[in-house]
Design a protein around this nucleic acid. Structure first.
Lengths: 229, 229
DNA sequence: CAGACTTTGTGAAATTCTGCACGAAGGCAT
DNA sequence: ATGCCTTCGTGCAGAATTTCACAAAGTCTG
């Protein structure tokens, strides 16, 4: 029972906590003070017991017979996810997507300021996008150190994505958001989250086809699946 | 009892098949004819037994002692995922992201042509983006029927995302790619895939914080578990 | 303050997913 | 053909995740 070390939260629960946080922020914005696991479960589209178990990984912050306090739970989730501080982001690849991310102001207020953008194309280096100037990818190491970067977003072409991630890891960045449609080779100490619309569409295609075939065979069976990233 | 119906593939496997397909397409492009489960496992960053089990859901298409044929497997995965036909996509919300998706030509060649884009803002309706003209969301039903749309991509503001998905479901669309940072309320017969960069960043934040704390404590602790996503 | 009512927190069962281990099935060399 | 080598396909056990079910702990009412 001596649990000085932080409790480890199951991966599956970690992916749901940001969703809960989003919902609680909305509740807070509409002046809701308290919520029950049942209410949150409906809003998040999951089982109520799962909500309670997920929240219990943070500690026992509910009150039996009453529920949870919105603001307090928001704080606890933020604490657990490491959102009480900022994590600086650098974008690699100053193409359409990279520049859009750099210009988009929506990440800084959520704690993920984009503090730099780099490319390997001499024609792009030096151009400005939003409030940032595109740097040379060869100076990535210095940039990471000077600007205290912890997260790298890869928006390069597929062909250069692997060298981009190698450069990031070299520079000491261990959290990567990858937009290139490729599986990156990384040591297991590095976290990678892939965002690939092609993959998402193909997953939808599978379930769509299942439905199509099912309604064509016009019989019993109504099994469906909903998936979230 | 009678198993005329298609084998049901586990959800976890369905999400990996598109990744395998991607890799096999690359192998094909570099004139590789055959591959073993081991080779694909390395490229996909997963266990070889998992690869074999995943592929076995398609049928027994490997040759013992030899491996799998690249082109044949590509075809089988496409068949299973429903990628031998096209699935038409409509974009709801003609903002930055919506227009970018409409203009981006990368989906049509992969079997997901964007055939329409709509908005509810009179100022946007009638404008052209790429080869498409922004339609009125009130005509969504007709558009879905006339253009045989099966997938809807929601790129509206958070505030209008729910009414957008309601309209899609009304129109008979049951596969939804949602970019709005909100959990959509949908019947269980509808498939939803969420793409939310904020959620992804927050997940990365959790594991980054775990690493940070671990390297800071870097003492006395006997139990050290490595976190990898 | 007692009893009815609500909702949490969590063991335990059920389900899903993963990975090992090995028999089966092919190729290849002699 | 025979025997060796490689690699698939899969049964099974263990891990992870989800769900159930209920005691515990609180509120509320009269």
């Amino acid at each position: 029972m001596t649990q000085l070390q932080r409790r480890r939260i199951p991966d599956a629960a970690v992916t749901r906590l940001p969703v809960y946080l989003q919902i609680l922020n909305n509740l807070h914005a509409t002046n809701v003070l308290r919520f029950s696991s049942d209410e949150l479960a409906v809003l998040a589209g999951v089982n109520a017991a799962k909500v309670r178990k997920d929240l219990s990984y943070l500690g026992s912050y509910g009150t039996r017979g009453v529920g949870y306090e919105v603001t307090y739970l928001i704080h606890q989730i933020k604490r657990e996810l490491g959102l009480l501080r900022e994590w600086n982001v650098v974008v690699i690849g100053a193409g359409n997507l990279g520049c859009a991310l750099a210009k988009f102001g929506g990440f800084a207020p959520r704690g993920f300021p984009v503090v730099g953008i780099v490319d390997n194309d001499p024609k792009k280096i030096g151009q400005t996008t939003g409030s940032l100037t595109v740097g040379d990818v060869r100076n990535l190491g210095k940039m990471v150190r000077d600007l205290n970067v912890t997260i790298g977003a890869i928006t390069t072409s597929t062909a250069t994505a692997q060298s981009a991630v190698d450069a990031l890891i070299d520079a000491g960045v261990a959290s990567i958001l990858n937009f290139a449609p490729i599986v990156l080779a990384t040591p297991s100490s590095v976290s990678v989250r892939n965002v690939d619309l092609g993959v998402e569409l193909q997953i939808l295609s599978y379930y769509e086809q299942m439905r199509t075939e099912q309604s064509e065979s016009a019989k019993t069976q109504t099994k469906s699946s909903t998936a979230s990233v």
